[in-house]
Simulated assay, not measured.
Amino acid sequence: MISKRALLHSAACAGISLLGVNVARAARADLVYPTRQVKWVVPYAAGGATDVLSRLICQHLTERLGQPFVVENKPGAGSNIGTQAVISSPPDGYTLLLTSTANAINASFDPSLPYDFAKGIAPVAGVARIPLVLVVSNDLPVHSVADFIAYAKANPGKLSVASSGIGTSLHLSGELFKAMAGVDFIHVPYRGSAPGLTDLMSGQIQGMFDNVTSSFELVRSGKIRALGVTTRERSEIMPDVPPISDTLPGYETASFYGVGAPHDTPPQILELLNKEINAALADPAIKARLGELGAIPIEGNAGQFGAMLVVETERWRKVVELSGHK
């Protein structure tokens, strides 16, 4: 026989136990993510590598996490409009930012920014690094980086070299090249790569620093000529094009892309997103597509991506100072 006191004690313990289970369940429920659509802000116009990379990852996240991850383009002011929009969003994991080289550059290129990127954005994960390439018009009588340097020295200030805009990695890669090679050429900024490549093909400008992603097909079809890639290793989609550093030791730049969230986003959400983004980068189909774009996956945890952002920001600060541009 169980005494009344023992029965009441057992019931009380059971009640406490059930209460603990319910509290744990409630705590877990508070951490369920996502429960609705997630906005993935791309601070550039639609089209190009940024959209392709974003849609590849978003499709994976949608399938794995059961809620739509939707790309929203917010172009303007060298990525600053989209970046500020994300920094100003609630830190709940429902607004993410495609971070890029522009964020590392703008930290020192534009001292009037109304936000502090390093403090306003929590690093989530890396996505990919894309080499740049120095391409020239077929009309220009040069076939190597050494030829280009010699021609520029023999014709100071007569070469026109394009980029996708002032303050971009393309522009500053050219400025770094000028400083290290001791040459001078005229920088011609365009609103994106496409119009610059069009004028390059027609011979209206003589050279351009561009992402391998957008130049690859034009080089392969013989419409323009590639002289050198900006990374220390050759690009998989341009294996015959040597690194510029073979001629200019120490020269190295690249465009990089990753994911950030507003500061104070819960660490459990950041960890989940990092895990799933890394799973996407390991997926054979996504790996193959990145390879077609000339992109090199950036894998690792959020801390490693954050450390990379610090290194890249310092790297580009030195380039900005060297260029003398603001």
Results as ranks from 00 to 15, higher is better:
residue 309 L to T: 00
residue 275 K to D: 10
residue 307 A to H: 02
residue 25 R to D: 12
residue 307 A to N: 02
residue 129 R to A: 15
residue 135 V to R: 00
residue 63 E to R: 14
residue 23 V to L: 15
residue 28 R to L: 11
residue 49 A to L: 05
residue 138 N to H: 01
residue 43 P to T: 04
residue 176 L to T: 05
residue 263 H to E: 02
residue 247 T to Q: 10
residue 243 P to E: 14
residue 312 E to C: 03
residue 100 S to N: 06
residue 318 K to D: 15
residue 126 G to V: 00
residue 53 L to T: 01
residue 275 K to A: 12
residue 280 A to Y: 14
residue 66 G to W: 13
residue 132 L to G: 12
residue 96 L to C: 03
residue 86 V to L: 07
residue 285 A to N: 12
residue 36 R to H: 15
residue 320 V to H: 07
residue 239 P to T: 12
residue 128 A to Y: 01
residue 215 S to W: 06
residue 260 G to S: 01
residue 80 N to V: 02
residue 109 F to Y: 07
residue 164 S to V: 04
residue 177 F to Y: 09
residue 168 T to Y: 13
residue 89 S to V: 02
residue 226 A to S: 06
residue 111 P to R: 01
residue 226 A to E: 10
residue 79 S to D: 02
residue 282 A to V: 01
residue 79 S to L: 01
residue 85 A to I: 06
residue 163 S to G: 11
residue 5 R to K: 13
residue 9 H to F: 08
residue 304 Q to G: 03
residue 145 V to H: 02
residue 80 N to E: 11
residue 166 I to T: 15
residue 99 T to I: 02
residue 323 S to E: 10
residue 224 I to V: 14
residue 42 V to T: 07
residue 216 F to Y: 13
residue 32 V to R: 15
residue 300 G to M: 04
residue 11 A to C: 11
residue 13 C to S: 11
residue 312 E to V: 00
residue 258 G to P: 01
residue 53 L to P: 08
residue 7 L to V: 10
residue 111 P to D: 08
residue 154 A to D: 13
residue 11 A to V: 15
residue 288 A to P: 06
residue 210 D to A: 04
residue 260 G to W: 05
residue 299 E to D: 03
residue 143 H to P: 00
residue 54 S to C: 07
residue 63 E to I: 04
residue 136 V to R: 03
residue 149 I to T: 03
residue 29 A to Y: 11
residue 236 E to S: 15
residue 195 P to W: 13
residue 35 T to D: 15
residue 274 N to D: 13
residue 239 P to W: 09
residue 96 L to H: 02
residue 280 A to F: 13
residue 161 V to E: 10
residue 160 S to D: 13
residue 296 I to G: 08
residue 192 G to A: 09
residue 247 T to D: 12
residue 323 S to H: 09
residue 163 S to M: 11
residue 208 M to E: 14
residue 63 E to A: 15
residue 51 D to P: 01
residue 72 E to P: 00
residue 124 V to K: 05
residue 189 P to M: 08
residue 270 L to M: 05
residue 99 T to Y: 04
residue 227 L to C: 05
residue 149 I to V: 12
residue 2 I to F: 07
residue 100 S to F: 05
residue 28 R to V: 05
residue 275 K to Y: 12
residue 248 L to E: 10
residue 180 M to H: 00
residue 149 I to W: 02
residue 46 A to I: 11
residue 86 V to Q: 06
residue 42 V to D: 08
residue 224 I to Q: 12
residue 264 D to L: 12
residue 94 Y to E: 03
residue 245 S to H: 09
residue 8 L to W: 02
residue 48 G to M: 10
residue 117 F to N: 00
residue 177 F to V: 02
residue 168 T to D: 14
residue 173 S to A: 15
residue 308 M to L: 12
residue 180 M to C: 06
residue 231 T to W: 03
residue 66 G to T: 04
residue 125 A to D: 02
residue 318 K to G: 13
residue 103 N to G: 04
residue 218 L to D: 14
residue 95 T to N: 13
residue 147 D to F: 07
residue 104 A to H: 09
residue 275 K to R: 10
residue 18 L to K: 09
residue 317 R to P: 10
residue 150 A to D: 15
residue 188 V to N: 05
residue 188 V to M: 10
residue 82 G to V: 00
residue 277 I to S: 04
residue 325 H to L: 15
residue 187 H to T: 03
residue 267 P to T: 09
residue 77 A to M: 05
residue 302 A to F: 06
residue 310 V to P: 00
residue 270 L to H: 03
residue 91 P to V: 00
residue 23 V to Y: 14
residue 108 S to A: 09
residue 249 P to W: 08
